[in-house]
Design a protein around this nucleic acid. Structure first.
Length: 347
DNA sequence: TCTGGGGTCCTAGGACCC
DNA sequence: TCTGGGGTCCTAGGACCC
């Protein structure tokens, strides 16, 4: 039997979870974001229902802008535990099928499936997920993970779409390079400077020129992406986590040194709690500082010894403050713990 | 559009050592 | 002392994704 990759992606996931427990929200514009009060500044949209998107609201947009564009929307505070639980429910349904499930996030997974009829399998899964969790999903079918993921974009909402070596050129060739996952705004702009604008341009780009512009790995890799080439290896074993972090944007900028240190200590405690909960140790500590100007800097230090103590993480974070300019108001502070590698041979 | 929070991977340059 | 080349570690920054 041939191997297929199925990319399963839940439709407007956060909104769908909220509607499941509050059916009166169905059919209404719903916006999930940092706070239920959209007039609070420095908060953004995390997920918008299709009704809200019709007004130009999208993820990442400031809540205040969203409420201006769609004042009749229902605004809901984000509820992480609820989304964690709903995500687990869905993944469990997928694992009941004879497939390998590689979880990619809250609302998506790549599946390895050996079948003659991937569309039938996809429809079967959609029915099952809907019946058992009340959530709707779209499924992209591909001969590798890149094509499967790209296919999902054409499957939404609640549909199925197949993208393989046979139709890649016809479906994708004329589209802008930014439509490819992994190519963002910056890379698209650099490619445009090389006169590479469409997926077809990228697929036929000069590899040496690409190497010179993007480096020995990324350059050739982008060309392969233009051809729709990618990995088809799917694994159910999650990769070891590399880092854990917490960051906070303050409602008003911080200027007082003592207040800044207090916030760093709090962040260090939160991060360390997560690290300990996962049974890991901290190898390096980073702070992230964003000033009112939005200029952002990261400072990292390796600890003399790996630690699991919040006091060590906090002390490192505060010592890193000496490496940034402290004369300007601060809008965001973050603490990141880079974790010691897990010795795979001992697992 | 006065711009969140949590992640991952790649590249480059300097220090240091042989 | 006019001065190579390679390897590894460390830090900073860029880019991208959900």
């Amino acid at each position: 039997l041939p191997r297929w990759i199925l990319h399963v992606d839940l439709d407007q996931f956060l909104v769908a979870v909220e509607r499941r427990r509050q059916p009166a929200l169905r059919g209404q514009p719903v916006i999930v974001g940092g706070s239920s009060d959209p007039s609070v500044p420095r908060k953004v949209v995390t997920s918008a229902s299709y009704e809200a998107r019709a007004y130009g609201v999208h993820a990442g947009m400031p809540l205040r802008t969203a409420s201006r564009r769609c004042p009749q929307a229902v605004f809901l505070e984000s509820d992480k535990p609820a989304y964690d639980a709903a995500s687990s429910e869905v993944m469990d349904v997928l694992r009941d099928f004879p497939v390998i499930v590689e979880v990619w996030g809250w609302d998506e997974a790549a599946l390895g499936a050996d079948t003659d009829d991937p569309e039938a399998l996809a429809r079967d899964m959609q029915r099952c997920v809907l019946n058992r969790t009340g959530l709707s999903c779209s499924v992209g079918i591909g001969d590798n993970k890149l094509r499967a993921k790209m296919a999902t974009g054409f499957a939404k909402p609640a549909g199925v779409f197949r993208l393989t070596v046979d139709n890649w050129e016809a479906v994708m060739g004329h589209r802008p390079v930014i439509d490819i996952v992994g190519i963002g705004r910056r890379t698209a702009a650099k490619l445009a400077a090389l006169d590479v604008r469409t997926v077809r341009d990228l697929a036929t780009a000069d590899v040496e020129a690409m190497r010179a512009t993007f480096g020995p790995r990324m350059g050739p890799w982008y060309v392969l992406m233009g051809r729709g080439i990618g990995s088809s290896e799917v694994t159910a074993v999650p990769r070891a986590r590399r880092s854990l972090s917490h960051q906070v944007t303050f409602p008003t900028d911080l200027v007082d040194r003592e207040a800044i240190e207090t916030e760093l200590v709090t962040l260090a405690e939160e991060v360390t709690k997560d690290v300990v909960a996962e049974g890991r140790t901290v190898e390096r500590v980073a702070i992230i500082v964003r000033w009112a100007s939005f200029f952002t800097r990261t400072r990292v230090m390796k600890l003399a010894e790996p630690t699991t103590h919040a006091a060590d993480v906090a002390a490192a974070a505060i010592s890193l403050l000496a490496r940034v300019d402290m004369d300007r108001p601060i809008r965001l502070l973050g603490v990141r713990a880079d974790l010691s590698p897990i010795d795979e041979s001992s697992v």
